[in-house]
Amino acid sequence: MARKSLIQREKKRHKLQQKYYWIRQSLKKERNKAPSLKERWKIHGKLQSPPRNSVPIRLRRRCFLTGRPRANHRDFELSGHILREMVHACLLPGITRSSW
């Protein structure tokens, strides 16, 4: 189980990312349409003004149940060992289990 503070920090980043998403998108479109290099630099400065934690690259995928940050499957939002346990318990339909 991941520490609660790390999970809360990740939730806060997710909220910030959603809050500033449209602002970032509009600034990126402006920057791409800017005719001169000086205007592009000005828009680039505006693009850096929102908080750093609002950048989508700072988000980390975590397991839905345990909060584990590694070995996550995108389709299920579960970490590998939890996914395997659920498959062996037949809780996820349509997945074939394999053991070798």
Rank of each mutant, 00 (worst) to 15 (best):
M1Q: 12
M1T: 05
A2R: 14
A2W: 09
R3C: 12
R3I: 09
R3N: 14
K4P: 08
K4A: 15
S5M: 10
S5C: 15
S5D: 10
L6D: 15
I7G: 04
R9M: 13
K12A: 15
K12V: 06
K15W: 07
L16W: 03
K19R: 11
Y20K: 06
I23S: 09
Q25M: 06
Q25P: 01
S26A: 07
K28F: 05
K28N: 05
K29H: 03
N32R: 11
K38V: 14
W41K: 11
K42Q: 13
H44V: 01
K46H: 09
K46A: 15
Q48R: 14
S49I: 07
S49G: 01
P50H: 05
P50N: 14
P51N: 03
N53G: 12
P56T: 13
R58W: 08
R58Q: 12
R58I: 07
L59E: 08
L59Q: 10
R60A: 08
R61N: 08
R62T: 10
R62L: 15
F64P: 00
L65Q: 14
L65P: 00
G67F: 12
R68V: 03
R70S: 14
A71E: 12
A71Y: 03
N72H: 01
N72K: 03
H73K: 04
R74M: 11
D75E: 14
D75C: 09
F76D: 08
S79D: 13
H81K: 06
I82A: 09
R84M: 04
M86S: 02
M86G: 03
V87Q: 01
V87G: 00
A89L: 09
C90Q: 04
L92K: 03
P93H: 01
P93G: 04
P93K: 01
I95P: 03
I95L: 08
I95F: 07
T96P: 00
S98P: 00
S98K: 08
S98H: 05
S99T: 06
